[in-house]
Every structure is written in structure tokens, then in C-alpha cells.
């Protein structure tokens, strides 16, 4: 058997250690070892974005990241967005604007949008359509997802004002 590696990182604010083969993909570690099943597997070729997580401040497709690369990293998934029982504005926005249907792409969508709003707190529709284009949805046609992100942007900016 190949050498195993002990990898320590922060997942949604908590320290975790896993022992994995070098080839283990982050999405499998999250889902199979760490009971973090919010991120999903959709395409396995780095196209659909259902597996999107936030890794050290970057949105990444966790099907194309090796767990061994995550030593000392900070990983945020959909499970980490709700704080003290309060939904993140994006989670609220997706509900309010009917930005989801089957719900399969939703965790990746929201996690991606989370980073987008960190980088651009007031994105236009065009910005959102361009910077959310790494996440595929087959149900919604994206129109309400755009609205959901805008809802969150407005809520977050008015909370700061």
C-alpha cells in the first residue's frame, strides 16, 4: 500500500486530522471521513462546481484538490456558513429568491457566492454571471441565483452601513 499521510487542517473552524493516501481527493475526505456531505460530486472533471469549498480564501473544486495539499489549510464548506443558529445572508437569499430547486448544486453555489461577495460586495448581474460561471445548475436557469446573490449583497451591505 502506498504511504499514508496524516493531514491536519481546520474545517469550518474546527481542527481535524485525517490519515489518507496521497491520492485521496479532498471531496472524498470531506464526505467520507469528516461527515461533511454538503459539497457534492457532480462531474469529476472540474466542470460542475458542486464540490466547491473555500480553501484558504479561494473557491476551489474539491474534486481536483488532493487532501495532502491541505496541510494547515482553512477549509470552509456550506456547513460552516450558519453562525450561532443564524443563516448566512446567502442562505436566506437562495430561499427568498427561489434560487434552488433540487438542491444538489446549492451548497457549492452558496459557498462560491460567499467568496465572490468577500471580493466584490456589490456585484452587478454581469459580474455575478461571470464570477459564478464555475458552478453548473440544471434546474433554475440561474436567473434566481443571480437575484439570490444580489439579495445577500444588499443585506450584507445594509448590515454594515
Amino acid at each position: 500500500m502506498a504511504n499514508k499521510h496524516t493531514v491536519s487542517f481546520k474545517l469550518n473552524g474546527n481542527d481535524v486530522d485525517v490519515v489518507v493516501e496521497a491520492r485521496e481527493l479532498l471531496i472524498h475526505t470531506l464526505r467520507e471521513r469528516l461527515a461533511t456531505t454538503g459539497p457534492h460530486i457532480g462531474c469529476e472533471t472540474t466542470h460542475c462546481g458542486a464540490c466547491t469549498v473555500d480553501l484558504d480564501g479561494a473557491s476551489v473544486k474539491s474534486c481536483t484538490v488532493l487532501t495532502v495539499q491541505c496541510q494547515d489549510a482553512e477549509v470552509l464548506t456550506i456547513e460552516g456558513l450558519e453562525q450561532n443558529g443564524e443563516l448566512h445572508a446567502l442562505q436566506e437569499g437562495f430561499t427568498q429568491e427561489h434560487g434552488l430547486q433540487c438542491g444538489y448544486c446549492t451548497p457549492g453555489m452558496i459557498t462560491r457566492a460567499y467568496r465572490l461577495l468577500q471580493e466584490n460586495p456589490n456585484p452587478s448581474e454581469e459580474d455575478i454571471r461571470y464570477w459564478m460561471a464555475g458552478n453548473l445548475c440544471r434546474c433554475t436557469g440561474y436567473q434566481n441565483i443571480v437575484k439570490a446573490v444580489q439579495f445577500a449583497a444588499e443585506k450584507l451591505s445594509s448590515a454594515q452601513a
Binding site: H47, A58, S59, V60, K61, L116, W131, A133, G134
Partner: peptide, 9 residues
């Protein structure tokens, strides 16, 4: 190039 996530990596 790629898509947003691809461009982060």
C-alpha cells in the same frame, strides 16, 4: 481561462 474556481488554482 477556465472558470472562477479554476483561476484560483
Amino acid at each position: 481561462i477556465g472558470d472562477p474556481q479554476v483561476r484560483y488554482k
